[in-house]
Every structure is written in structure tokens, then in C-alpha cells.
């Protein structure tokens, strides 16, 4: 049994990790040693947090880390800039990142593919994962929760990949591939 008080050690390590990373990244050159120390302190903190109180311990340790980083950033609010260069003027091509010039029809088609279509494919993927989990003996509860958890995870990842995929053909190919793979898995585990 790990002592509950060790959560404070986990928090202290998280704070130290962020402070070390601040020192490391604030140097003009690469500081591999400090970098490694910072990441190691964070990792050990998270491991101790997890050992003390599982997911709760990891969540609380993460709050220590994020809180420290925000506090360090808050300090920067009161610092005057050393010198101020005007913001770089933008070239036509980079200003709108391709959004402004997109025709409405194309934009709507992209929205339909990355939005509702990707959602449908994600649901198919999650349902296939459910069938696979249940077939593997994971049980109904795990299978059903997998659907609840996978849809909001797979959909945004797929939407992002679709948005950075250049041609409409490749977008449709990708969605079809994921959908077919999901259906194939479902058939394979005897879902249909």
C-alpha cells in the first residue's frame, strides 16, 4: 500500500519538472541534460501519482504541472519586451491559410466529409471495436463503453486527417478504407 501522503511528492516532482523545462527551454542552446531531468521529474511524478491513487492521482499530478506552467506564464505578463519588432507582413498565400479562397460548394463538401461522414465512419469503427472486444471476452460493459469513448476520439482524428488530405478522391478513399476495415472486422468476429 502506497502512502496517500506521497501525492504531495508527486505534485512536487511535477512542479520541479516544469521548472526544469522552463530553465532548459529558456537557454539559447540545447540543454539535453536539463531537458531529460525535467521530463524525468514529470514522468516520475505521474507514476507516483498513479501508484498512490490511480487515475485520481494522475489527474491531480497533472493539475500541479499545468498550474505551475500557467503561473510561470503569468509572470511573463509583467515583463517588458526587450525590443519590439513589428509583426511580419503577410504574403497573400499564407494570410488565410487557404480558407478564404475556398469556394462555398467545396467548403460545404469538405464540411460534409469531415463532419457527418467522418462521424458515421467513426461510429462504424467503434461498433466494430465493440464486437471485437466482446468476441475477445472483454464483456458487454467494456464493449459498450468502448463505443462511448471511441466515437469522440476517432471522429476528431479522422476529421483532422481528412482536412489535411488534399484531394477529394483521397478523402473518400480514406473514409471508405476505414469503413471497410470496420465492416471487415465486424464480419470477422461474427457480428453479422
Amino acid at each position: 500500500m502506497v502512502s496517500p501522503e506521497l501525492i504531495w511528492l508527486a505534485g512536487a516532482l511535477a512542479v520541479m519538472g516544469i521548472a526544469l523545462l522552463r530553465m532548459s527551454w529558456g537557454r539559447p542552446g540545447r540543454a539535453a541534460g536539463l531537458n531529460a531531468l525535467g521530463w524525468a521529474a514529470l514522468a516520475i511524478g505521474v507514476v507516483i501519482g498513479g501508484a498512490v491513487a490511480g487515475a485520481w492521482g494522475i489527474a491531480v499530478t497533472s493539475l500541479f504541472a499545468v498550474g505551475t506552467a500557467i503561473a510561470i506564464l503569468a509572470k511573463a505578463v509583467f515583463e517588458h519586451p526587450r525590443r519590439q519588432r513589428p509583426a511580419r507582413p503577410l504574403r497573400e498565400t499564407e494570410a488565410l491559410n487557404g480558407v478564404g479562397g475556398t469556394r462555398i460548394g467545396q467548403a460545404l463538401a469538405t464540411f460534409a466529409i469531415a463532419g457527418p461522414l467522418a462521424l458515421v465512419v467513426s461510429v462504424l469503427f467503434a461498433l466494430a471495436a465493440r464486437l471485437a472486444l466482446i468476441a475477445a471476452g472483454a464483456g458487454e460493459a467494456n464493449g459498450n463503453v468502448a463505443v462511448l469513448g471511441l466515437v469522440p476520439l476517432v471522429w476528431p482524428i479522422l476529421a483532422f486527417v481528412l482536412l489535411i488530405t488534399q484531394t477529394r478522391g483521397k478523402q473518400l478513399l480514406l473514409t471508405s478504407a476505414v469503413a471497410i476495415a470496420a465492416l471487415a472486422l465486424a464480419v470477422l468476429v461474427g457480428g453479422f
Binding site: L21, W25, G26, L73, A76, V77, F78, P156, I157, F160
Partner: peptide, 24 residues
């Protein structure tokens, strides 16, 4: 989630600049 992923990809110096805040 999608914005977080795309934001990470769009920011090649994410760690190097992690504390660079020219707020003033």
C-alpha cells in the same frame, strides 16, 4: 480534440516556444 491535434501539428516549435509570452 481536432483543434488540439491540428494546433500541435501547426506549431513546429511547440516546446522551444513553450514559455515565450510577449504579453506586453
Amino acid at each position: 480534440v481536432a483543434l488540439s491535434i491540428s494546433g500541435i501539428v501547426a506549431h513546429p516549435r511547440i516546446f522551444r516556444d513553450a514559455f515565450r509570452l510577449r504579453a506586453r
